[in-house]
Design a protein around this nucleic acid. Structure first.
Lengths: 347, 347
DNA sequence: CTGAAAGCGCTTACAG
DNA sequence: CTGAAAGCGCTTACAG
């Protein structure tokens, strides 16, 4: 075709529906009806269109289809977290896998977008109103996350993980963090090989509901027994951040015999620090984590932890969006997925 | 299950350029020129358009823009691997991070798509010709990967990692696997604390060039010294698969004193099997890996391995696509990134 | 059963 | 400097 100077690259334009129509000897409308399996098409026309499509290698243009009011069959999983942290978060990976699996079997395409915590909103709005997304799943939202408001405003079918807010009209899937943590603390207090005498917790970053719930369960469980809870907060969910928190905790309370951590990488960090200080796990100190992530199997001994069904959550996220696409309205319902304690060597 | 009624959802349509034009009291063309910063717009018109955009909250529709021949500013990183394997592959994560970082600072949006190994080609073609992608980066391609041909046919700006093929017109970025492996084997033979007497290798899956190159280096290095190489092939890059290969290797050659592994998860697997059989690392057997992934720090002792600049590769992939978008033609050039030996406790 | 036509939102020559 | 108009590829009433 013709190339203009200001456009260095020839536009990528495949064969169009018009090409197919010409080859098949019918109108574009008829081709459209055939492709979309909507409306009547004589078997004679169908035959020749079929052949023409095969001959030309026609592939529909999603942008045009979207412009004309149809669905693009793309659904985005937005990771609202800096990429490097994302890479360290096993749950996010699991969700991605689960969502991909569900979407693939339901004839949709998963698009993962990483949106940094400090990123501008413009790029996100562009995606929202870009016309190439039929739905949005938001992972790792903060409390009061502005992205949630934008999604709601857009009216796009959506689902969130782990967010709770007033006036939320988007369904949320989450693990039952509170119950999971409560069960684990109870285990540490009563049933562990060496029941805890002096327990502390390394809590996760303050701005996530997961961290809040796990911490609240810890506090409630101890207060129910009139034990004073010791809590050290880690700034991030990462191992590095956990190292800092663990040192602070152990400096302030050298006598703890049990540490419950808000996730596995924090627990691994505690074990590292403990080892550095010549204390053994689980003999001197018991350590437990949360998530049953890869970290859980990479410590010595392996971590006793709370298994989190990350893939199931991804499936749930995707399913909620697809159901809305099917016409259901789910409002701000909360879909809790339950956890399970996994006892290994560390506690 | 499937989408029922015609269109149960109100289509998500934000304010359009026409709305802005009306509010600003100018024509749509003028708004477009203003938004795209192309052509002349009087400062008076600019003022009122500016205000109108702000007032209406206008966000451009990418689909329409794309249809009109413009770029969507979306670039896809296609992971050609089953999602569960992807989740285990640290390099892929690093590339994702690197690509995201480069693209974000260059005003493009990264879209990650997971394409299963056995997946049909239709879904991929749809993305290629969908009109919402300006470029493609392909990670984890197999040898003779059909996706490469499709990308080439489409004419979309693209880059690949780790693929080599006749007649390739797409630039490739790769680590210098051969040199990296050769250096490591040389180290194991000559300079390690306990130089190897009887070395074996656990090689990676046959259908990747990375596995081939690492294995070839091992073979060449040994043959240069007239030592017969022992090689056991692991079906996948995964830890589980490595367990199987390690057992087979150790059954057939119980006397090896050094095992070079094609990646870290395989090395970790070897260490696990060794431990099960009561042999210590590095005293009885030395083990080395490749990648310097998270696995490398999760074994006891930590792994001696070959560091792979995964993030740098992601950056390179993205940069190559963006350069093509800028008009450069790179052909099938190969961009090799060099590795570095990291000596830790295991060898 | 099937064409012709209008429209989705945006861009870009082309007149004025 | 700016408006009117055509076109990108597809879908969908609406006539025939």
């Amino acid at each position: 075709m013709t190339e203009a100077a200001p456009r260095p690259l020839p536009p990528v334009r495949g064969v169009t529906m018009a090409d197919v129509a010409r080859v098949a000897g019918v109108s574009r409308g008829t081709v459209s009806r055939y492709v979309r399996k909507t409306g009547y098409v004589s078997s004679r026309a169908a035959k020749s269109i079929e052949a023409a499509i095969h001959e030309t290698g026609y592939v529909p243009n999603v942008a045009a289809r979207s412009l004309a009011g149809m669905r693009a069959r793309n659904i985005a999983l937005v990771i609202h977290q800096d990429a490097t942290l994302f890479a360290e978060d096993p749950n996010l990976m699991g969700m991605m896998v689960g969502a991909n699996q569900f979407l693939t079997t339901h004839d949709h395409q998963l698009l993962v977008m990483i949106h940094p915590e400090q990123g501008g909103l413009t790029r996100f709005k562009n995606a929202l109103y870009g016309g190439f997304l039929d739905g949005i799943m938001l992972a790792a939202p903060r409390i009061g996350d502005p992205l949630v408001g934008l999604i709601q405003e857009s009216g796009l079918p959506a689902s969130l993980v782990g967010a709770r807010a007033e006036g939320l009209t988007i369904p949320v899937v989450d693990v039952d963090n509170y119950t999971g943590a409560y069960e684990m603390v109870t285990y540490l207090l009563d049933r562990a090989p060496k029941p805890a005498k002096r327990v502390a917790m390394i809590a996760g970053p303050r701005d996530t509901t997961a961290a809040q719930d796990r911490r609240q369960a810890f506090v409630d469980c101890l207060e129910a027994r009139a034990i004073e809870p010791i809590v050290e907060v880690s700034e991030h969910w990462s191992h590095d951040s956990g190292l800092v928190a663990a040192r602070a905790l152990l400096d302030a309370h050298p006598d703890v015999d049990t540490v419950f951590c808000a996730n596995d990488s924090l627990a691994a960090a505690v074990m590292t620090v403990l080892q550095d200080r010549g204390r053994t796990v689980p003999d001197d100190v018991r350590v437990a984590g949360f998530d049953d992530s890869r970290w859980a199997m990479s410590t010595t001994p392996h971590l006793t932890t709370v298994a989190q069904p990350a893939e199931a959550m991804g499936v749930a996220l995707a399913e909620l969006v697809v159901r809305q696409l099917g016409g259901e309205s789910l409002g701000g319902q909360l879909f809790l997925q339950s956890t399970q304690i996994v006892v290994r060597g560390s506690a």
